[in-house]
Design a protein around this nucleic acid. Structure first.
Lengths: 216, 216
DNA sequence: CAGACAATCGGACCGTGGTCCACTTAGCCC
DNA sequence: GGGCTAAGTGGACCACGGTCCGATTGTCTG
């Protein structure tokens, strides 16, 4: 979400708006003042609603209403419900991405790639267990779930680490396999429903990484 | 879906109906004639609609209408949209299950467990590529997706094979990891969007099985 | 400051999934 | 056949996600 594209909290500009043409608006990428204000209002309102009544209480209409804004504006800004939720998660995702791209070892560059991969899994597990409901709701749409840049970025990252480790074989597929075990819905289910403690999930990740990266 | 419970095309009987009490109905598990007729009608109508306009055209209202039945009846029978779709897939799932539980090797019992596991993946891939849209729509609901008996049965099966192979470690988690790569949404995305040929997905499965079951 | 234009807004509107409950009917017992 | 009971029915009703388009407003140019 951060690597491949502009921050998702950027408005869903219609394609033509990439270049605001010779129009009155400022340079490309600027956002009209009222638009920016409304976006902030909407995010605040959404966050408040989620905090107060959980993700299910975050109705698009309720958000619009709480932000004193029309419903159409919400959709214009964030595309759809999933988009709004992703925007809510953007800070978190960004932070995690940053930790990996530029942060200190063992997550950031410089550490042994195997350690980085292990750390990636643990960090991701933490995020999932913290924001499980949000994440789950964010990729409820099966059509965009796997196509979303956020997932692409993670997949790319994991694939890179696998290559650094020297894994041979179909690295992209192996990356997907690893990522699959960190799926929000799955992890939440394992943790909440099946009652698996975090430690077990962590060890499961470590084990899987070990098996997949083992020389043959 | 077949191992753990009665065929899902069985009506969603309210809990109390498990024992029809001393009431007028026949023995436990029977279904009133009109109910049975309506269920058949609904399934037929649903199948027709899917064939004609794809899964998106299969509106609950359209199904009810085509079956000459009230909307409430549809929901009473199948619980929700996902339930109806699962019922539609029940034949397929049952067939696959049967092939594994009682069919001929390499899928059925008798073959080397490693070969059975490989065969399982290939068979599952075939099903997913054939009924991708249906399967995807069937587990659109993240809440029941992982909790559903169907998935449980698969997980149990894979776990059993892993144990037979002699894999040590957290077998249930490893089974989930394997299963994750066969997720309908993921596979469809890899195949249709990313353009990965089936053969590559098959080899990916084989490779993953090999890595996970390799002695250490 | 006025004019012009596009980005932005807002809320009426729509389709869909899902619920509810008063009414009907099948099936058993006498 | 008549009566009884619970399963079954159907369609009005609701909430929510998402779309649309006429009205509005911000911003730049002259």
């Amino acid at each position: 979400m951060i690597v491949d594209v502009a921050p998702s909290s950027t408005p869903q500009v219609p394609p033509s708006a990439a270049l605001p043409m010779a129009g009155p608006a400022g340079g490309p990428g600027t956002e009209r003042a009222d638009a920016a204000r409304n976006r902030r209002r909407l995010l605040d309102a959404a966050r408040r609603l989620v905090a107060a009544e959980g993700i299910d209480g975050m109705t698009m209409e309720a958000v619009a209403c709480a932000a004193q804004v029309g419903k159409g504006t919400v959709f214009r800004r964030f595309g759809d419900r999933a988009g709004l939720i992703r925007a809510l998660l953007d800070d978190t995702e960004t932070a995690l991405q940053d930790r990996f791209l530029t942060g200190p070892p063992p997550l950031g560059p410089g550490a042994d790639p195997h350690d980085r991969l292990v750390a990636f899994g643990h960090a991701r597990l933490d995020v999932v267990l913290l924001h499980g409901d949000l994440l789950r709701a964010a990729d409820a749409d099966d059509r965009t779930r796997y196509a979303h840049p956020s997932r692409g970025a993670s997949a790319t990252h994991v694939a890179m680490l696998l290559r650094e480790i020297g894994v041979d074989g179909d690295v992209p597929l192996l990356a997907e396999a690893l990522l699959g075990t960190l799926d929000a819905g799955l992890v939440v289910h394992q943790h909440r429903v099946l009652g698996m403690p975090v430690e077990r999930l962590r060890q499961g990740w470590d084990d899987l990484v070990a098996r997949i990266t083992a020389p043959r």
